[in-house]
Design a protein around this nucleic acid. Structure first.
Lengths: 209, 209
DNA sequence: GGTGAATTACCACCTTGTTGGTATCTTATA
DNA sequence: TATAAGATACCAACAAGGTGGTAATTCACC
């Protein structure tokens, strides 16, 4: 009999782990699947079953995935951990890597990618998404900003408004006249069809400018 | 041959819908399963397949679940929609109900609950979680609000400030003197250690008051 | 019944932002 | 090179909010 890779699925969404365990159990590669739906249960299952790999939801309630990861890494360094997350966030990925994860998978990956990652990790490799320097959604490429025809300077000023600077402070920072900043602000307000500094702040935060 | 209930699974997490469709396909009750992983694909699949039921993730990126729900309800009123969500949030549940959903399921429900909900909805019933009046995290019980010793009235006024009302408008709405509102605002600013209306708005949004 | 917190109300002075103008200079581009 | 868009700068009148006061009334709670 061939060796079965034992996998612990840890995610608080029952539907997700039921589905995923069915899916994995169906595959010809044999897996032993265990499930846990909160941090405490993970700790329990790990000490009971000593799985090879844990697929660990990063966003579990209570003891979160990151905390479990750090704990596991300290107490069971032999167990490989692949973080599961909804977010393709370079920052999160880095955090997981530094905390000792063996991999990071997006929940919208395919089953093939999942199997590939499991296989890689079992061979001792790491499995992280390539650091894609996507056209990052900074303020300048923000679709909202484009939609409202905001200019570079206007967006720059919006960034400072977001930092709660007054027109005077912005003028000093950018070596501009107070009048100039007022003019820019006036134009911004027109373009966004707003009529108060407070509304502007709400707009900026709501639309993540 | 018995009639198969056709179900469209709409969720951006491929692993989730792969798993769930396997799980549902395995069940003795026969389902026809289709999947979609974004809002546009949902619209496409619905017009192609005319499913009986849509299991619709409330948090899809791009065109969100709520928007799809509203659209479906208008254009295909015969199709029943069960919202899938991670959040047991009375407010969200109410929103879904009012927008015409036939049900609301938590992603951490069991497969049995899912089947029960599908069956109920096919019979024309509604399937919503019991309205549990949990200690709701409204503005009044918000830990931040408590930490800063904000009074009921102050929180009430903060809610209106968040709606971009001016002091005058708040005074009219609450049948108070403008001076009174100014006083409340002054006290709020002191308690939060802020010094401008703009900073206050940022604080309110950042801390989700 | 007294105390303190909460709510209400007022005033004067100041700072900040809003609005609707005008006007010059630069820069990208057709 | 002509034109348009962008950035810069100024002004005046006005609106909104910020600050530091005072003070009366209500209401919960000891």
């Amino acid at each position: 009999m061939t060796y079965k890779t034992s996998i612990l699925l840890a995610d608080d969404h029952l539907l997700f782990i039921s589905g995923l365990s069915t899916l994995l159990a169906e595959e010809q590669n044999n897996y032993d699947i265990f499930v846990a739906h909160d941090g405490n249960m993970v700790l329990q299952m790990v000490s009971d079953q000593q799985p090879d790999i844990i697929l660990l939801d990063i966003g579990m309630p209570g003891i979160g995935g990151m905390e479990v990861l750090k704990y596991m890494n300290r107490v069971y360094p032999a167990i490989k951990i692949i973080m599961l997350s909804s977010y393709n966030d370079a920052h999160l990925i880095e955090k997981a890597r530094r905390a000792g994860a063996s991999g990071y998978l997006l929940k919208n990956c395919s089953i093939e990618e999942l199997q590939r990652a499991i296989a890689d990790v079992m061979e001792g490799k790491l499995s992280f998404p390539p650091i894609v320097h996507l056209p990052e959604h900074n303020a300048y490429t923000n679709p909202i900003a484009q939609q409202f025809n905001l200019t570079k300077r206007e967006i720059e000023i919006i960034q400072l408004i977001k930092e709660e600077l007054t027109n005077k402070q912005i003028a000093d920072k950018l070596f501009l006249s107070l009048f100039t900043v007022e003019t820019h602000r006036k134009n911004i307000m027109h373009k966004l069809k707003l009529n108060s500094a407070v509304s502007l702040m709400k707009f900026i935060l709501d639309f993540k400018l």
